[in-house]
Design a protein around this nucleic acid. Sequence first.
DNA 1: GCTATGATCATA
DNA 2: ATGATCATAGCA
Length: 178
Amino acid sequence: MKRQKVLPRSFYARPAVKVARDLLGKTIEHAGRSGRIVEVEAYLGEGDEAAHSARGITPRTRVIFGPPGHAYVYFIYGMHYCLNLVAEREGKAGCVLIRALEPLRGTRMPCNGPARLTRALGITLEQNGADLTRGDIRVLENENGEALLIRTSPRIGISKSTDLRLRFFLAGNPFVSR
DNA sequence: GCTATGATCATA
DNA sequence: ATGATCATAGCA
């Protein structure tokens, strides 16, 4: 089996929407567990009221404005962790929420939902700010160059900027959430 | 300091 | 439709 390459920082140093679409089909792994990305959402800087970064740099959003290729993990509803991958150049906000994985190795826990996949992969606030090119979370290139059929929709669970179609998922994939 | 809220999920 | 449960942010 051919060894998959870790995505370079240049992959992330692009507009969040492009990074989001291109992340579909990639493999993410942590703590010996891995899954294939089948559903993501892009969160932008300016003009995206639904994004945590909408009101500028705070202690929590600091990493979103930092260099690309790092993990932004946040804690929500008193019990859930969600994983984002930081995009855009340093100083500009933009990230991609990982919403669903197709489990590959190390877990049979459900990965269809942003909080479910962090639980399945063992990701917590401890991984916030982790470097995706060096640290214990790794994102790997596709093994083959298969064409992916990508579907688009509004994002889930937000109340602002609902007109933006920034959710991307693999058409017909059974591991997409909902 | 205090309070409101939430990029969710399980249960009913 | 509702409850769980607490970090974060905004305000006093």
